[in-house]
Structures are given as structure tokens and as C-alpha cells.
Nucleic acid binder design. Structure first.
Lengths: 254, 254
DNA sequence: CGGATGCTTGAGGTCTATCAAAGCGAGTGG
DNA sequence: CCACTCGCTTTGATAGACCTCAAGCATCCG
């Protein structure tokens, strides 16, 4: 009920972490405490505003109900790396579980709305029931798998493959939410994409143009149309030199 | 015996996840079940052997007591990416929490020994106490932070910086275990390092040679001696063109 | 001792970064 | 409403970092 009041039914999520939310609510109810105590509040984040920043104390997890975020970690020298783009239905804040402080910035790319989930209360509520813990394990485990997949992209793919993967990943995530996967509008700049993929914005632009020239996608600035999902997903290897079946010596998998 | 491993008591851990182990034991005891039920068994893994492989069903977490592992994820096309090198005191298997199946291979680089922690039993044991859950959250959270830091390395550093970071990270991790951080023997090949860092083994070799020429380290094949920790850690930017304070446009925080 | 595997180093090619300029779009103010 | 500005995008030319190919050496092991 929590986020069911807004006006954009198509692109909005009732409660992105429905399971977690309802679990939490159920737990809270079971513990005879008001549900509102667990799912504290909805918070609006303006475009360009930070939901939290690296170094901020860890208070809550945030479930995105509407909008789009980017998360970025930073090195001492100031260099930054966008570790991911999160959309409605995604969870933000898991980076802070370990140290009690956030290790990345979360910045809204669009006017967004999140559902605040105070972590300590989740913990307390979960004490009675295993379900909540299981759900959190699942979410953290997914984050680990996602990050490792990203390492594969960054470590072993050419520019064009990275961009192709990026687009097809976005499409897949939209699909998983029941949104049209064929066409959409990018919420981030070429610069952001490039940073995320370890490329410059010019290279991203060129890669997109090239993918379009090959007929895999159609682009008009931020507007993307996916024409050949299969080719995109397969990495879209084109004039690739790299990409030998290679490696990881030592094991099998020659 | 290859790299001076075995029979060196200094390099061994009683139980790497001491906290988790003892917690588990305590919990089990509290639940009036034999402790041996939680920490099932110690298992030996030969050099080159897999502790588990991608696709294997998730049964346990593994705490390394002795030895060295590499973990690698694979793409459909067979390309692999080494996501990390794990040493005594590290935990293996968190990749499988989300899906119930392992998403990477874990291969021993040395004769190793692990402590098996059946996950379902941990869950059950944790039902009563929060401590065990907290410990697991901590460990998973650390994995997330580590992976994201690796994304920063892969996405924004030059070859030489990556190698410098790699070496200094190894040194730090040895230090954290009370081992001499100044000199050690690499358990992995140049090829493995290169794969992990998104480079070729030739480039790794050259980068190491260059770092040695600059006096930051001393190398003799696998034997490493760290001479200038500070310079190494600072990324060791040398003839770097990349690496402007740059980025992550969009938000502000120029 | 010979073979195998891994490491080093060199030469040349290629992908991607860098530098540069022009087109486009959206928001602003006159 | 239009000119203007500013940020984003596209595209080109050039340079540089890293990969590829290749040969020689070191180390390990049967």
C-alpha cells in the first residue's frame, strides 16, 4: 500500500522489494509492532541529488520505487568508478553493511522515490523469522554475482562488446519488470556509461553508432531501440581481435 | 612445496573464520546439538584441483585454513575472468548464496585445506541467535565492497597501476594476517594475474619489471620483495596519461 | 638430461584515449 | 516566440597504451 498512491502505474513498482517489504511488514505485525516502524518512510530524491554519499553512516537500505540512480566508488586520488545503475525495484545501500558506513555515492539520475528500510529494525524483526534473513542473503548474494559479472565485462571485453552487453542488460532488466524491452530512453549520459564500462564517452558514442550501423540497435541520442537482442546479448563481437576462448590457466576450461 | 607453503606453521590459521566458527559452535552447543554438526569437516584440496565449480549445487561455505585459491567466472563463449585470489582466512562460496548454485570455479593454487560450513545448518543455528547472521552479513558485505573496489581497478587504472595495486593489496592482506608483508612468493602465474587485472601476461611481466626498475619492488620470478609500500599503494602512477581527477559526471562533486 | 611450463624482452600492429570541432536539444531570458 | 547558452552527442585525426607475435631464457620435474 505504501507506494500504491502515485500516478504512473506503468513504470512504477508497488514495492520494489515486495517480498522483503511484505516479510518485514508481516514480521513487524507478528512482533506486534506497527508495520510503519519497519518501512519507515518514502523519500523523494531530486535529479542530481545524492541519496547517500561515501562515508555516510549506515542507517537504512533503500528500495527504489520510481526513478533511476547511479552508484559510484572513489579512489583517494579522486578518480571514480560507477559500479552500477539502479532502477525501480532495485535495492540501494548494501555497500554499507560491512563497515557501517557507505562506501559509494548514490545519485539520482531522474526525480526518484525510495522506500526507506531501517536496517537495525530489519535485523530485530528478522530475529524471530528466518524468511527476512533469507531474503537479505538472497539480495546480497545477487549483488555479489552481479558485481563479479561486471568484472568479467571490464576485464575481458572489447569496447563494443561492453556497450552491447550494457544495452542488452538494461533491456533484460526492463523485461524482468514487465516493461517494454524493445525501446527505452537512457537515463544516463555517454560519460556515465563510459565511466561504468571503463571507456571514454567518445568510445561509447562510436560503439553505439557502430552497433546501429550493423543494425543491432537504433539510436537517437538517448532514445534506444533494440533490433537484434540475440546478437546484442552474444556480445556482438564484430571486428574483434581479442576474445580468444582463452584462458584462466590452471583449471580446465581450455 | 612449490612456494614454500606446507609445514610453515606461521602461515596457518586455526580457523580462518574464527568468529564465525566459534559462533557457530556456540550456537550449535546452545541448541544442544554437537558442534561437529556445524563445522562438518576439514577437506584437503590438491594443487590444481577444484573445490567447487560453476553450476555445482550450493551446500557449504568454505573457510580456508591453509593454501591459496583462485575463483573465476565464465562467459558462454568460454572466456573466463578470475574474480579473486583467496588465502588462508578467506571465505569461499558466497557466490552461490543467491541462486543455490555456484557461479564460479574455485581452484587451489597450492595444496590447500578448507573448513566446511554447511550453509543450511548455519541458517538453522542462526535462527536462535543474531550474532551468526550478523557475521554472515559482515562477510557478504565485505565481498561486495571488495568486488566494487576491483571494478574501480579494472575500470580506471593503467596496467602499471593495476599491478601496483595488486601487489600492495597482497601485501596488505598478508599484513592483516600477521605475516611478513615485505617479502613473499606469488602463488599464481603471470597469466593468472593478467587475467584477473584485465591484462596479458606479457604486460604484467613488463609492469613488474618496470616497478622493479623504479625501485618500488624487487622481483625474482615468483619471489616478491616490497621496497616502497607507500608508492605502491598510491597507485604508482608513472608515465601515466590516464588518471585525471576526472569524473563521474552528472551529479556534482566536481 | 630433456621436455614442459612459465617468465622476460623486443618489434610491430591495433584498439582506444586524446584532442578538436561541429551539430543537436533543452532550458532560459529577453 | 525566438535568440542564446550550456551541456550532451557525434565524428574526425592523431597519438599512445596495450595486445599480438616471436624468440630466448629460467625453472621445475620426470
Amino acid at each position: 500500500m505504501r507506494s500504491g498512491t502515485a500516478e504512473v502505474p506503468a513504470q512504477e513498482f508497488q514495492c520494489p522489494l515486495m517480498r522483503l517489504c511484505s516479510m518485514a511488514t508481516a514480521c513487524a505485525a507478528a512482533a506486534s509492532s506497527p508495520a510503519g516502524q519497519l518501512v519507515a518512510a518514502h523519500r523523494k530524491v531530486e535529479r542530481g541529488e545524492a541519496l547517500f554519499r561515501s562515508g555516510d553512516p549506515f542507517t537504512s537500505l533503500y528500495a527504489i520505487t520510481t526513478g533511476f540512480f547511479k552508484t559510484a566508488v572513489f579512489a583517494q586520488n579522486g578518480r571514480g568508478q560507477i559500479t552500477g545503475f539502479e532502477m525501480a525495484g532495485d535495492l540501494l545501500g548494501l555497500d554499507a553493511v560491512a563497515s557501517g558506513r557507505h562506501t559509494c555515492d548514490a545519485i539520482a539520475l531522474e526525480p526518484s522515490q525510495v522506500c526507506t528500510l531501517p536496517f537495525d529494525r530489519i535485523s530485530v524483526a528478522g530475529r524471530g523469522t528466518q524468511v527476512l534473513h533469507d531474503q537479505l542473503y538472497l539480495l546480497m548474494g545477487r549483488e555479489i554475482v552481479r558485481d563479479q559479472r561486471m568484472m568479467l565485462v571490464l576485464g575481458s571485453m572489447t569496447a563494443q562488446e561492453r556497450v552491447a552487453c550494457f544495452i542488452s542488460d538494461l533491456a533484460d532488466r526492463r523485461d524482468a519488470r514487465g516493461w517494454p524491452r524493445g525501446e527505452f530512453v537512457l537515463a544516463m549520459t555517454r560519460g556515465d556509461i563510459g565511466n561504468h564500462l571503463g571507456l571514454t564517452f567518445e568510445t561509447v558514442s562510436r560503439a553505439l553508432s557502430h552497433l546501429a550501423a550493423r543494425g543491432l540497435i537504433h539510436i537517437k541520442s538517448r532514445r534506444i531501440e533494440v533490433l537484434d537482442t540475440t546478437a546484442l546479448r552474444s556480445g556482438a563481437g564484430a571486428t574483434m581481435t581479442r576474445g580468444k576462448p582463452c584462458a584462466v590457466s590452471g583449471g580446465r576450461q581450455g
